[in-house]
């Protein structure tokens, strides 16, 4: 189970005055069960890249292989791929259209031509996974709060039972608590369902807290691809491409520069706390 991107290139409006290389020579292997953070400033090619993963956008060069099969093979079933690689767009609540929450979540499974029983089962399960209480399933999706709408929209993709879940900024516009709730739920789904999750985010703090691997995009190319510790160690290069490391990483480097020696390969509050406490106990001795 893996996605392989091989020398992937994508050029907008080729052959016209508006020609623009959106992706250049992307080589990536996305393994089974990974939790990946995809970061990059606006226009770095992140959104274009994820639309290649389920065949919504066709590369102008190179190939995409899903579980070893070439998705650009004329016989390849792209519709099936779209169910395997679930893509949650930015502000997904804007795609809700049905009269009730349940019916909206059933839309995906219905398109798969499943039996009514299976459609129901999947919809209920998906709604449960995102934490929508039972009393809301017959409500109109448009009466829900912003955070609830977003979860229903995510459930709409989960009900397809994807093997890979790609989320484009799932927390945009939510308040801090709403943000943590959604990310915790996604982490839980990743752990319990053993699916691959790719999280596109602008928040370095969020990415550092949840993912095991970070892919940094810049000008349509992969700039870094490593663990959070290793990627954020390059915080100075990240700044040059309009990004940053989590605030605690800076705090540790600043301590180090002031002659207080602490571990600097720190990306979360928890790790920073342990690093400083270790140094503090050193002074007390």
């Amino acid at each position: 189970m893996s996605i392989i991107l091989d020398k992937l290139n994508y050029v907008y409006s080729p052959g016209t005055a508006y020609e623009k290389q959106a992706l250049g020579d992307i080589d990536l292997v996305i393994g089974d069960g990974e939790f990946i953070g995809l970061i990059g400033h606006t226009g770095s090619g992140k959104s274009t890249l994820i639309q290649h993963l389920n065949g919504l956008v066709k590369a102008t060069g190179g190939g995409v292989y899903y579980n070893g099969a070439d998705i650009y093979d004329p016989d390849y079933n792209l519709k099936e791929l779209r169910t395997k690689v679930g893509l949650v767009f930015q502000y997904p609540e804007h795609q809700l259209f049905e009269t009730t929450v349940l019916r909206d979540v059933q839309f995906g499974p219905k398109n798969l031509g499943l039996t009514p029983l299976e459609i129901d089962l999947r919809a209920y399960e998906a709604l449960k996974q995102v934490g929508i209480p039972d009393e809301l399933i017959d409500a109109s999706p448009f009466e829900l709060s912003g955070g609830q709408k977003r979860r229903v929209a995510i459930a709409g993709v989960l009900a397809m039972k994807p093997e890979v879940l790609v989320l484009d900024e799932p927390t945009a516009g939510l308040d801090p608590k709403g943000r943590d709730e959604i990310l915790d739920q996604i982490e839980k789904i990743h752990d319990e369902q053993h699916i691959t999750v790719i999280l596109v985010s602008h928040s370095m703090e969020d990415v550092a807290k949840y993912v095991g691997r970070i892919i940094v995009m810049n000008h349509g190319r992969v700039a870094f691809d490593d663990t959070p510790e290793n990627v954020f160690a390059h915080y100075k290069e990240l700044e040059k491409i309009g990004l940053a490391a989590p605030q605690v990483t800076y705090a540790m480097h600043a301590l180090q520069e002031h002659g207080i020696s602490v571990r600097t390969d720190v990306t979360t509050v928890e790790e920073a706390k342990n690093a400083v406490l270790a140094a503090f106990r050193g002074w007390q001795r």
Binding site: L56, R82, V88, F89, Q95, F107, G156
Partner: peptide, 16 residues
């Protein structure tokens, strides 16, 4: 642009 986005989002949910 919005229409384009919504179409893609529904296609990602298996719409044809």
């Amino acid at each position: 642009e919005e229409t384009d986005k919504i179409m893609k989002a529904q296609q990602a949910r298996g719409a044809d």
